[in-house]
């Protein structure tokens, strides 16, 4: 894929998908339990558990894989409390406990899959949260130097070897003498 083509999609996720997903939620976000409105630690713990199900092993690679979900530069942060309460409600329905963060990876995966199968608005919210988590963790958006050790991304360039020593041996016959086709 062309790199710039794909970068273009980022705008959708951050300005589009999440916003589109969240706009209708304004109607219903007043209705979720008070504890999620008051207790930021509960919201953060729930979203960390969500992020570590989206990217298992991410927690060992970054201080907070859910940081982007709470970052007010992105629209999702406005709905973080509602999103956490939705995870909690689905956890209650499926496993009899509202404590999503205490579920096993397999259980959390199933709860998220439930959200992705729900009504259109909820589905968009879950998709947006997954994409934003992936972008933030894999691309290391909060630290140009850190990258993402999980996938061997070292952040900025560190003098890695660009080519192989015997590069000539890899090349087939060219069709042109200059690289320009007549």
């Amino acid at each position: 894929m062309e790199r710039r083509d794909v970068v273009r999609n980022l705008a959708w996720i951050i300005a589009g998908t999440a916003a589109a997903a969240c706009t209708p939620l304004r109607i219903i976000t007043r209705a979720f339990p008070e504890e999620f409105k008051r207790d930021r630690a509960l919201v953060e713990a729930t979203l960390r558990a969500f992020a570590s199900a989206v990217i298992p092993r991410a927690a060992g690679d970054t201080s907070n894989p859910a940081r982007a979900l709470l970052d007010h530069r992105y629209p999702l942060a406005r709905y973080a409390a509602f999103f956490a309460s939705d995870l909690s409600q689905r956890s209650q329905s499926r496993y009899g406990t509202p404590a999503f963060a205490t579920l096993t990876l397999e259980q959390r995966t199933a709860v998220i899959a439930d959200g992705l199968s729900a009504d259109g608005t909820t589905r968009k919210l879950y998709r947006g949260a997954i994409y934003l988590t992936q972008v933030a963790v894999y691309a290391g958006i909060y630290d140009d130097d850190a990258g993402c050790a999980l996938i061997g991304f070292s952040g900025r360039y560190r003098g890695d070897a660009v080519s192989y020593e015997n590069a000539d041996a890899f090349l087939p016959a060219p069709l042109t003498s200059s690289g320009n086709y007549e």
């Binding site: 790199r3 970068v7 980022l10 994409y131 894999y138």
Partner: peptide, 13 residues
């Protein structure tokens, strides 16, 4: 061939 940074590998695909 094409290359892509992680940002592009996961952003919208």
């Amino acid at each position: 061939a094409a290359k892509a940074m992680p940002l592009e590998l996961v952003a919208g695909i």
